[in-house]
Structure formats: C-alpha cells, structure tokens
Design a binder for these strands. Structure first.
Lengths: 270, 270
DNA sequence: TGTCGGTTCCCGCTCAATGGTAATCCTCCT
DNA sequence: AGGAGGATTACCATTGAGCGGGAACCGACA
C-alpha cells in the first residue's frame, strides 16, 4: 500500500518521521530528518509540510522541526494512559516521599516495558528509566512483575524467544525464568539487582485493574548495596492497592459495571 | 493534495479520525468512527486498518477502537511538553498540598489555553479543566496571564477578533481587556471570578523560561466566595519562580547556553 | 568570490488510494 | 426459526495525489 518506490504507506512514513525524534534529538532540520529516516529528500519536505499544516509538527524560529503540541494533545486526549496515570500519581508521590528514590509506573507494550510515569529525585543514583521510554522485560523488575501476571499463553510465547544476557545475573533460560516468575507471584514483588546499570537495583509490585488483570507495575530504584531493600516492599504494595482501588472507583463513576471487591487482588493466579 | 473526493489529504483524515476520540468517547466501533468523522465507510475501514498496523490505534476485545499506546509514546518521546511538565510537577505538588484545590499548568496554543498538567483534589469544587483539554483565553485566569505576557503583535491580533461573552463579567471589548492585561502585568497575577462555571474562580501566575519569555501559566481553582483568595498568590508566585529555575537548570544541563539570572523575571515587559 | 548544505520549485509518471456496490457476519428481537 | 438492522469485509474500476529526480535558489562561512 504505497505509491513509494520502497513500498511504504504514507502512514508508515509519518510514523518513521515522528519516530526520528526522541529526548536526545528533540529538534532537527528537515534535511537531517530525511537522512535519519532514509526517505528521499523531496518526499521528506513534502510530508513535513503536510504535517506542519496539521500542526502535528512545528517549526521553530531557527527552522528546525520538532513534534507539535497538537500531536501530544491528540495522543493524550483519548488515551487510556491518562486515566491510569492520574489514578496512580498521588500514590506514587507518597511512595516517592517515603522511599526518597525515583518511582516509576510501567506497562507491558510490544514485549517491552513502557514507562508512562516517573517521579525522580535529586538523590536518585543511576536510573535510566524515562517517561515514554522502553526497557527489556526480562531485565527489569517492572518487566518481570508484568510478565509474571500475564496470561500463560503470552508467557510461553515470550519465553520461546531468545533473550539477551545483559550481565552475569540476567536470567535467560526459560526454565529458570519460569521458576523466578512463580516466585514473584508468590512473594508479590520482584527485586532485580541492577541488570542494566549495576549500581542500582529495582523493586516492583503489580498493579491490578478492577477485573483483577494486571495493568501496570509500580517500582522504585534503590542503591544496590542498600541492605534493607525488602523493607520498601510494603509501601509499594499499599500504594499499588490504592491505585487499584482508584482505578475501580474511576470506572464506577463512569456508570460502568461495578468493580469487583479487591479481596483476591494479590492472590496467585495461573 | 488528496485523492479523495472531498479534497483532503490522508494526513488530514488521520487527524480527523484521531480527533474523534476524547475523554467522553475513548473507544468506538469503526462504523461510528466513520459517522463521527463524516468519512466514507470503506475509506474509514481502510484507514483504520492501516493505523492498526502501525499500532497508532488499537482494537479492544469487543472490537471497538481506541487510541494506541504507540501514539502516546511517539507523541511524548520527542515532545518539549515533558520537559516543562517534569520541571513543574514537584512545585505543583507543593502548591496543591498547601492550597488544597486543583492546580493546573496551561500553555497558549492555537489561541486557546491547553492544559498540560492538572493535580486534582477531592475537595475540588467545580473544575472543568482536564489534561489535554482546552479553554478560551479571555475567559480563564490562565489565558489572561498568558496573553498579558505575549508579544504585542500577538495580543493585537487576538484582540482584533470578536470574543464570546460567557457571563456578565466576561470582558470582550479590546480596550477594557487591554486595561485588564496591563493590570495583570503590574500585579503579577490574574484572578478570574468563574467565567464558565460561576461557583469557582481561578488565580493564575506566569511561568517564564530561561529567556524570560512566557512559557506557561500556573493556576489554582478556588471557591468563589472564599474571601482570602489573593492570599494564594504568593504561593503560586514562589512555585512559578521555582519552575522557571528548574527550566533554566534543565537547559544548562544539556550543555546549552547558560540561563540568564532570574532577577527581572517578574518585571513588566512590553 | 566560491563552496556547501539546506530549502524550494518544477514536472511527468504511475499506482495507491478512493469509494461505490454487494456480500457476509453478527446480534437482537419477534 | 426467521428476519431486520447494523457492523464488517470483499470486490473493483477509476484517477489524481503522491512520488522523486533534477535544477534553481538562498544563506552562511571562508
């Protein structure tokens, strides 16, 4: 579906263009955009112009292009992300205030962890999570929690793929991972000695929705050598329950089906 | 630029489709989407399919369509919105904790106020602001603050247009508005008795960037009958200065030009 | 003055996008 | 069961929007 020589559709090319921007490259010239996307020069200019007209991109005084306000607005307005984020934010603040290290909220998307909110702190050591950033599932505490509570079919499919070993401690063999996931379900949390950045380690707990399926993972990043890391867990769990409750209330307020009681929330399922 | 009978480009139609979703309609069938956008049925199905392939839209179990996670991710990743929001959030939390009513952060976009962050509260009375929501400039305290510190040329253009009168107290005549804007610049804040919702009223202060141009408006919504509304102003101003400083630091950290001192920050300019 | 990179303009080719019609698949309702 | 009404998929002839190479233009820098 495309007029293009390369066989891409317009939409695909637009995605390419928008994808060229990230926190490291928030603005660039059209020519550079063309280079980064690999699109023909003329085509890049034409598409960028169309996107400028719709205000999905914006041109700044210098001539450089950056993602437009409209794009953010459209993406946010109808997104379910906002609901989850808004429900979670107050609880995340509480956690952040107590733990004093950065607190993140992540979801499972395209076999990766996508962080949708993050509260940093000055004390935060090394923490590579960014809002709208991605990290591998099997190498993060958030990812393991999300995976542990996902449907069996999904887990099987995930574990069937080869996994990259980031450090010595990264689990990559299906059997070992399965055992670890079971442990996570039993304990109710995942603790990961910094897999990507060795100095820090993460602790994550699951956040369930009104239908008792997993929605997100709430996690904190603490220094690795900290001895009382498990002491953080109760705070996280309490916060996670709070978020679940808030999600239920939000749904009920919309005149939706009444939320089920949260009794069996932390029960092991699968 | 369009193959379509109506003369729209694909991109324009995609925007139409995405725009059909809002917090009141977060998901719908493709047929309904076609009706809401006014696009031909077949075309709607084809475009939606393309968008599903790119994961800009997602299909939920029931078959309904909603905005995809990818859309939010792409829009957020390269957006300057995140920087502003992240710099502002801690200060907004402080304000929210003290004032006990909902705190919002808005920017000027397409001659309207676009709210990019909002911290609500249970005590919050009536507050129609929503994240990614829009309100008219001349009828909100945020809008007036933003307008008051905008370039003269922009103000002139804005005031040249006819303005809708929402209630008795809405200022719509250019002369009166100009006087009001001057007052806002002098006082350093804008106070608006609820123009759209009569029971509440808003107080807003400007947030400046490192280059001393206005970036956003920080505001709170308080009950209208509250006598000590102006007492909220100092808290807001302090927070706004904090945000400005955070913005400057963020830029400097990127190895950018060093930020100017914030001395003349609240000076009247124009 | 000349070079170089970014940007705009021009233009003929062509196939992707279009959108009507019709068939199919649902889910309710009778 | 039957069938009415809506949503979704399948089919297909038509055509102009999208394509992209090339050249001209512009502005910065040496």
């Amino acid at each position: 579906m495309a007029n293009s020589a390369s066989g891409e559709s317009i939409i695909g090319r637009v995605v390419k263009i928008v994808s060229a921007f990230d926190d490291r490259h928030p603005a660039m010239s059209v020519a550079e955009l063309g280079r980064r996307t690999g699109l023909p020069v003329t085509t890049t200019y034409r598409l960028v112009n169309d996107l400028l007209l719709e205000r999905l991109l914006e041109r700044e005084p210098g001539g450089d292009i950056h993602i437009g306000t409209r794009m953010w607005e459209l993406a946010s307005r109808g997104s379910k992300m906002l609901g989850l984020r808004e429900a979670a934010l107050p609880f995340m603040e509480d956690v952040q205030a107590v733990v004093q290290h950065s607190t993140t909220l992540g979801i499972l998307d395209s076999d990766e962890v996508l962080y949708i909110e993050r509260l940093g702190s000055d004390r935060t050591i090394v923490d590579i999570t960014k809002i709208a950033g991605r990290l591998p599932v099997h190498a993060t505490s958030s990812g393991l929690v999300l995976l542990a509570h996902s449907p069996a079919a999904y887990q099987d499919a995930f574990l069937a793929r080869p996994l990259t070993k980031f450090t010595e401690t990264t689990l990559t063999e299906p059997a070992a991972l399965r055992r670890h996931l079971a442990e996570i379900r039993q304990r109710g949390f995942a603790a990961m000695p910094g897999v990507i950045v060795p100095e820090s380690s993460g602790i994550a707990v699951p956040v369930f929705g009104p239908d008792n399926t997993i929605r997100a993972a709430l996690s904190v990043v603490v220094p690795r050598n900290e001895e009382n890391a498990p002491a953080r867990v109760p705070v996280l769990m309490a916060a996670a329950r709070g978020i679940s409750r808030a999600l239920g209330l939000a749904r009920r307020a919309e005149g939706d089906a009444p939320a089920k009681p949260l009794k069996a929330l932390f029960a092991v399922h699968r």
